[in-house]
Nucleic acid binder design. Structure first.
Length: 439
DNA sequence: TCTGGGGTCCTAGGACCC
DNA sequence: TCTGGGGTCCTAGGACCC
């Protein structure tokens, strides 16, 4: 048998996480909202059946449907989703170390050779586990260990495994597992899959392909290599190869080092004063810096940006960004704050109604003290020890126990802060939010 | 009234070098 | 008529993913 990849992901991940802790939500149409409760970003199966409740739709446009159909709405609760994601990945790690965490709710597994362990021993053919058996065993295990329902696709390439997973979800008779490692059956599966569903084919390429008369994954797998290379770059050429069963994309067990870190948010309410904007930028800088240090990195460049509400027809629009390269990379919050606040001062213009701001760190390098700053830079080394201490305290007693800069006064009261009107408890990351069971 | 956030990769074209 | 050749680096923009 050749290479075997699996793509495993949770069904309706955010909704499933909520259901683990709130069984009342089972069988009810449920949707999860983006920051500020703005858009629909996840839906239960029941919600998907309701016309109009599409992904990415702003909540205010479908409020009448929500009311009429009794849809449960929840703000997103990333503390819970992040923690459940870890549990999911740990569970999958029990099956193979060759695991690539691809997103918050999905992972690729390299299972090549995992099934043939019994070839030379006393097991008879009938006792051998098939990939389908293995898939169901993984499903059962994950369900038992995390409470999450998952779907699984097996195939000789990652792109085909994605496709198999997609079909496993959409064909109820498969009960969540599809094995496309064998050539027979693959053609039919590809013929049944629209080209726009193929991993790596987005809106633009789907249009390009459809204009060329290519509407199914099977047809895409048969296009001329040079044509694909020319019209869709090497990315497209690889997709075609992968659909033919030629693996071009290996499992990446160790994620490559991050190249940039961003922290940005739309505001809960419109902000006009530079003071409030400064408060938001300070908050985003501190968050980005924590991510930076958690990754053991230092930033060699900083960008700060602000923008007005791009959807507003009445407001005059303004968006600007300021970037600087740092002479010496840093991972110190106060140093980064110095730059982002300086940038804000330069791009802020009075008289605009601001809706969003953000901070980006780039030029990331490992934060080994030897590489980022000389040992005799006493002030810097002291600031690093301070950061380390603050991170430790916040790790132990909760985010923002210690923080930089002024606290909001009653006047501004953090109008920029994200709204989560329907957020569930942080069941797994706050003692006070732990589920209690009466006896 | 109300519209998310955080990433990566690839290419073309310009600037610049010898 | 005809105006070198080859390389690197950077950036902006486009495409994609979840």
């Amino acid at each position: 048998m050749g290479s075997v990849y699996a793509l495993i992901d949770a069904n309706n991940f955010y909704v499933s996480c909520e259901r683990v802790f709130d069984p009342r939500l089972h069988h009810k149409p449920t949707i999860i909202l983006s920051n500020n409760d703005g858009c629909i970003i996840a839906r239960s199966e029941e919600a998907k059946q309701i016309p109009g409740l599409k992904m990415g739709v702003p909540l205010f446009q479908v409020e009448h449907i929500i009311d009429a159909c009794g849809v449960e709405i929840l703000s997103s609760n990333y503390a819970v989703y992040g923690d459940m994601s870890q549990r999911l990945m740990w569970s999958l790690g029990a099956f193979t170390p060759a695991l690539e965490v691809y997103s918050i709710d999905e992972a690729f597994l390299d299972l090549t050779g995992c099934l043939n362990n019994h070839r030379d021993d006393h097991y008879s053919r009938d006792d051998e586990e098939t990939l389908d058996d293995l898939g169901r065993r993984i499903k059962r295990t994950v369900r038992q260990w995390t409470g999450l329902p998952v779907s699984i696709g097996f195939a000789p390439t990652k792109t085909l495994a994605k496709l198999a997973n997609h079909l496993a979800k959409r064909r109820p008779e498969l009960r969540g597992v599809l094995d496309l490692t064998q050539a027979d059956g693959r053609e039919e599966a590809l013929a049944q899959t629209g080209v726009e569903k193929v991993w790596g084919i987005g809106r633009a390429y789907a249009k390009l392909l459809q204009d060329a008369g290519i509407t199914t994954a099977l047809e895409l797998s048969r296009v001329d290599r040079r044509w694909a290379r020319q019209r869709m770059t090497v990315v497209g050429a690889r997709i075609v190869e992968e659909l033919r069963g030629v693996s071009c994309l290996p499992i990446e067990c160790c994620p490559p080092p991050k190249r940039s870190i961003t922290c940005s948010r739309s505001f809960g309410m419109i902000v006009e004063s530079v003071d409030e904007l400064r408060e938001a930028v300070r908050f985003y800088t501190a968050r980005a810096a924590v991510k930076l240090r958690r990754g053991g990195l230092a930033a060699g460049g900083v960008t700060v940006f602000i923008q007005t509400n791009r959807f507003s027809r009445e407001d005059e629009q303004y968006a600007n960004a300021w970037t600087t390269e740092l002479a010496l990379p840093t991972d110190s919050t106060p140093e980064l704050l110095g730059w982002t606040l300086e940038g804000l001062k330069r791009i802020f213009k009075t008289g605009f109604r601001y809706k969003k701001a953000g901070v980006m760190l780039h030029g990331l390098v490992p934060a080994s003290p030897l590489t980022i700053r000389a040992w005799d830079d006493k002030a810097f080394q002291r600031s690093r020890r301070l950061m380390e201490t603050i991170d430790k305290i916040n790790g132990k007693f909760g985010r923002d126990t210690l923080r930089f800069g002024a606290v909001s006064n009653d006047e501004s009261c953090g109008r920029w802060r994200t709204r989560f009107a329907h957020r569930s408890p942080r069941y797994t990351t706050r003692w006070s939010d732990l589920v209690q069971i009466a006896n």
